[in-house]
Computed example of a mutant assay.
Amino acid sequence: MTDKVKDISAIVPQSEYDALIGRIDNLWTQAKNRAVEAVNTELLDANWRTGQYIVEFEQKGKIRAEYGKFLITRLAKDLTVRRGRGFSRSNLIYMRKFYLCFPKGETVSHLLTWSHYFELLKCEDSMEMQFYFQEA
């Protein structure tokens, strides 16, 4: 920008400039919201599919009783080494439960976050969980 044009208000009315700022600000707010929604959708899908993979692996096991209690612990250690945080034994148990409670992926509402589902999955009673799911 040259020294001749130091103040935009000398050329453009303030109201027009304010409208431009508002439009750009709104654009970036909407983009950020869509990005957050996309990330949430992908995280929910990954958590659901992780649970699905665990359940499918368990169901194919011939001697499930022998390895079942060790599977989640071993997965937690190995996935944490490979992927970092987020793969604790507790999280994997909840991912497994997520799949078992919502076996049809299309029934998962992307209006809720993983934190919402995590709280819902703490319910021991499936009717109680469904009640809170409907309320949410």
Rank of each mutant, 00 (worst) to 15 (best):
A10Q: 15
F102G: 05
E128C: 01
S115D: 08
L92W: 06
L111D: 08
E124G: 13
K122G: 14
E124S: 08
N33Q: 12
L75G: 06
W114I: 13
A31T: 14
N26A: 10
S90M: 07
L71A: 09
Q59F: 01
Y132S: 01
T41G: 05
C101Y: 12
T41L: 06
T107E: 07
V108R: 02
G105M: 06
D25G: 05
S15P: 05
L121I: 13
T2M: 14
T107F: 00
E66Q: 15
F133G: 00
F133S: 00
L79W: 13
E135R: 08
L112D: 00
E37P: 03
N33R: 12
L75S: 07
K6Y: 14
T29K: 12
A38G: 05
N26V: 05
I93P: 01
T41M: 13
S109Y: 07
V55W: 01
S115L: 15
N47T: 09
L121D: 01
A46L: 14
A76K: 04
Y67P: 00
I54N: 02
H110G: 12
L20W: 13
S90C: 12
V81Y: 05
V36D: 14
F131Y: 12
D7R: 15
L112A: 03
Q130M: 03
Q14N: 11
G68P: 06
S9D: 07
G51R: 00
G86H: 10
R83F: 15
E66G: 07
E124V: 03
E56Q: 08
E56G: 10
W114N: 09
Y17G: 02
Q59V: 01
S126P: 12
A31M: 11
Q59L: 00
D18N: 12
S88N: 01
P103F: 07
S88M: 09
V36P: 11
Q130A: 03
E42P: 02
N40S: 03
G105K: 13
W114V: 09
P13Y: 07
Y53I: 02
V81Q: 07
R23A: 07
K4V: 11
K122P: 04
R34H: 10
N47K: 06
I63M: 11
S90T: 15
G51E: 01
G84C: 09
G84H: 11
R74M: 02
G22K: 02
G51K: 00
V108D: 05
T80I: 05
E37T: 08
D3M: 08
M129F: 11
I21A: 10
A76D: 06
L100F: 07
T29C: 01
W48K: 03
G84L: 09
